[in-house]
């Protein structure tokens, strides 16, 4: 088995996450899809570290996790406040910023 399969899997998960962002309207689910994309990238990074024989990829994956945690905190807070104001968690309802 080749390590390339990890990368294929990563690409597949990333794509699924991206499509999920595009088709789902519940802001929380959209957020989950974004997390899925981040996780897919992390898998790639770990695999790259293995291919290149150093730990930098793992370090970057670690930083991605930290940043993702911060992002989740802020993102969910935003979703909360939007929900409080509009009684809706649909990303389509927050569309005032337009022509």
């Amino acid at each position: 088995m080749s390590v390339n399969y990890y990368l294929y899997l990563s690409a597949l998960l990333f794509t699924i996450g991206a499509v999920g962002v595009l088709v789902r309207r519940n802001a929380i689910v959209v957020f989950m899809c974004i997390e899925l994309m981040l996780n897919a990238v992390n898998l790639s990074l770990v695999t790259f570290a293995r291919i290149n024989g150093n730990l930098d990829g793992q370090i970057i994956a670690f930083f991605v996790m930290v940043v993702a945690a911060a992002e989740v905190v802020i993102g969910l807070a935003i979703i909360m406040s939007i929900f409080r104001a509009r009684r809706s968690a649909s990303v389509d309802d927050a569309n005032l910023l337009k022509y």
């Binding site: 998960l13 699924i16 999920g20 088709v23």
Partner: peptide, 10 residues
């Protein structure tokens, strides 16, 4: 399993 889970998520 992972792919199925991801598809299910969507």
């Amino acid at each position: 399993v992972a792919v199925a889970g991801a598809l299910g998520l969507v």
